[in-house]
């Protein structure tokens, strides 16, 4: 191997990576918040929602979980305009991430809800709470607390999967690497740097989410 590694271009091109990182973070923050909300709604519909909603949710979850994210993205960005639904690149990428995370988090949150003993529902009802109140205070919060680590992992997976949005010209971290390699012909170095940044982002995101879990769901074990 006679290849000379060269990272000198970083001096000129580092701002491109900074912009890319900002876009990747923006996508996962919006996609994460809205996606988990959608997932919570779907989990609620499957557990307690009206009968007509359940098959729709099951179909949605299975369709998304059994097709590649890239195809979902292409369908939304290239396919939907043909049906009169036009989105910008960033909107399409965000929507694809929301839909994707929504389906996976629905299954994760549902597992948490199903782990709730039936007596909890009954106890809530006996305190004259409405079904919605019972769901929010008695079922959902402990369920989220239980499955939070799994949910955090899924958000990290979606963040890593978002590398594909560069294919519809969203200027994320992968796009930055593509841009730099096309200018400098230092393909391996450009992808090496961006891979390392992704690894750092994944570790940081995971850490931040677990901390957030401690803030959102403080342990009340002593009350048991």
């Amino acid at each position: 191997m006679n290849y000379q590694f060269d990272f000198a271009w970083l001096a000129t091109y580092w701002p491109v990576f900074v912009d890319g990182i900002a876009m990747t973070i923006r996508l996962i923050v919006v996609g994460g918040v809205v996606g988990i909300s959608l997932g919570t709604f779907c989990a609620w519909s499957r557990a307690l929602g009206p009968a007509w909603l359940k098959p729709a949710v099951v179909t949605y979850v299975e369709l998304i979980r059994n097709t590649p994210f890239m195809i979902q993205l292409f369908f939304i960005f290239f396919g939907l305009p043909a049906a009169g639904f036009r989105l910008t690149e960033v909107e399409a990428a965000t929507l694809a991430m929301v839909i994707n995370l929504g389906a996976y988090s629905a299954e994760i949150i549902r597992a948490g809800i199903e782990a709730t003993p039936k007596g909890q529902f009954e106890a809530g009802a006996s305190l004259a709470m409405s079904p919605i109140q019972t769901f929010r205070h008695v079922v959902l919060i402990p369920a989220l607390q239980k499955i939070w680590p799994a949910l955090a992992s899924q958000v990290v997976i979606v963040m890593l999967g978002s590398a594909v949005v560069s294919q519809i010209a969203v200027e994320d971290l992968t796009y930055a690497a593509n841009f730099v390699q096309s200018r400098t012909f230092r393909a391996f170095e450009a992808y090496f740097i961006s891979t390392a940044i992704y690894l750092g982002l994944a570790m940081l995101l995971r850490f931040a989410l677990l901390r957030l879990g401690h803030v959102l769901f403080p342990h009340k074990r002593a009350a048991r």
Binding site: L160, T174, A177, F188, F192, T195, M203
Partner: peptide
């Protein structure tokens, strides 16, 4: 902890 897409790129250009 890294995107599969990056691994594909690195394999492609790394082998090169």
């Amino acid at each position: 902890g890294t995107p599969l897409l990056m691994q594909l790129f690195l394999a492609f250009f790394g082998l090169g």
